[in-house]
């Protein structure tokens, strides 16, 4: 009788396990190593890694940075055309400062992301394929610089997917990626 309701006496640690159970434990260890190895490996050989430095910054200082960036960019009817590789975007209740923006396909940009007030989400997908989407968390006081390169031209929609108040559902912005 090996009941889970009875106290154990004697050397129960020394009792052998069934061979199938031992085999399953070995399989599980190998599977765990595969999961870990693939994830770490993707950091080196994969193209999608949310990797980039974070800086502490006050919202007011970021606003000044974004204003300077806007000065340097070309303002068009459809949105900002950044002068260099840096793109500044800030989420706030209830919109995205710095959007819309026009990017060149195939060029790598450094996205500088933050929030002016509360926590927000930065959820992006191209208009033509909802399944191609990612989300990042934006925090006030933190500027996250993440490189991104969009190869497929088109309109990319950005929504907030972190609850930020009653108007949360209205937050929307776009990127335009051109040939």
């Amino acid at each position: 009788m090996s009941s889970p309701l009875k106290p154990l006496e004697g050397n129960w640690w020394g009792l052998p396990a069934n061979r199938h159970e031992k085999a399953w434990v070995r399989i599980s260890v190998v599977w765990g190593l595969i999961l870990f190895g693939w994830m770490v490996g993707w950091s080196f050989f994969g193209n999608q890694n949310q990797h980039g430095p974070t800086y502490r910054i006050e919202p007011a200082a970021y606003r000044a940075k974004l204003a300077a960036y806007r000065e340097a960019s070309t303002v068009t009817e459809r949105g900002l055309r950044p002068a260099g590789e840096d793109v500044y975007i800030a989420a706030m209740r209830y919109g995205f400062d710095g959007l819309p923006v026009i990017l060149k396909a195939g060029k790598t940009y450094r996205l500088h992301l933050t929030s002016y007030d509360v926590q927000h989400g930065f959820s992006i997908r191209p208009e033509h394929a909802l399944s191609k989407q990612i989300s990042l968390q934006l925090l006030p006081g933190y500027e996250w610089v993440i490189p991104m390169r969009f190869d497929e031209p088109g309109v990319y929609h950005v929504i907030c997917n972190e609850f930020c108040g009653i108007g949360h559902r209205t937050m929307h912005g776009i990127f335009i990626v051109e040939e």
Binding site: G121, L130, I159, N161
Partner: peptide, 17 residues
Amino acid sequence: GVPRRHPSVMSFPGTDF
């Protein structure tokens, strides 16, 4: 990519998205 914590995703004000 439908967001959680969102009461309405069938329309976003000011856009066709």
